[in-house]
Amino acid sequence: MNDVRQLDFSYFPGCSLATTAAESNRSMMQAARILGLNLIELEDWNCCGSSSAQTMCKNLSLAMAARNLSLAPAGRPLVAMCPRCLHYLRSAQECLKAEVETREALEEKWRRPITTDLEIIHFMEVLARYGLDRLQANARRSLKGMRYVPYYGCTLFRPPRLAKEKYFQGEMENILGALGAEAVPDALSYRCCGSFLSATDPEIVTPLVQEIIASAAAAKADCLVTACAMCQLNLEMRNTSKAKIPIFHFSEILALALGAEDYEEWFIRHLVDPRPVIRKLSRAA
């Protein structure tokens, strides 16, 4: 690792990774450190606005995302792990590019410039762009024998505004495949997890989650790997069937393969115990 140049990025954790999904944050930081990717947390960041601001008030939603952009230093890309945060940050940037007056009003309010050519990218994109050879060089544990369903969730490449830029489909398979894991293709990889309906109307979400889990069980997968922290939580929380398939954050599997040692601390925070999958892996090794 020492011979590889350190790369600097600004990093936007978002509310989920800062709290409920702290295990995703920790494992991603571990993986990044091992790969020589220096993620510098955005100073005094705030919520991206989320679906709630988007629903209730357009100006508010734009301004919340824009404040984060105003805090990002120019010259290094801004990285997000949560697909929704990425979506709202990018949408805000698009909007500020088009509406110069709105941007100037916000700049005046905060007395900070907002760079509209700031690159906003997902962590997976960072890996695809800079990390693939670093991955090979730093892999410590083989994922051979792990059958996983790549579960991207709804936001990473579906909204038309995002799809125009980077198309992520297949990226998770490229990365985890390089580390030895086997993607199971015939499960519901792209079905929505239910998002906030899991909090407001669980009776709508539970049968949908059952269907996703049942499809993974039928495909004989050991686990699902998600790109989104909210998917991870919903798929565990709303699974009431007997088949308890663990759901991993993408970053956890990545950090595990890169030799991170503190994984027990992440895994005890899961609602479905993932340790049997890990034991199976270490037996196979």
Partner: peptide
């Protein structure tokens, strides 16, 4: 919830 299945 804005999952964009319809849009895609």
């Amino acid at each position: 919830v804005g999952c964009h299945t319809c849009s895609s």
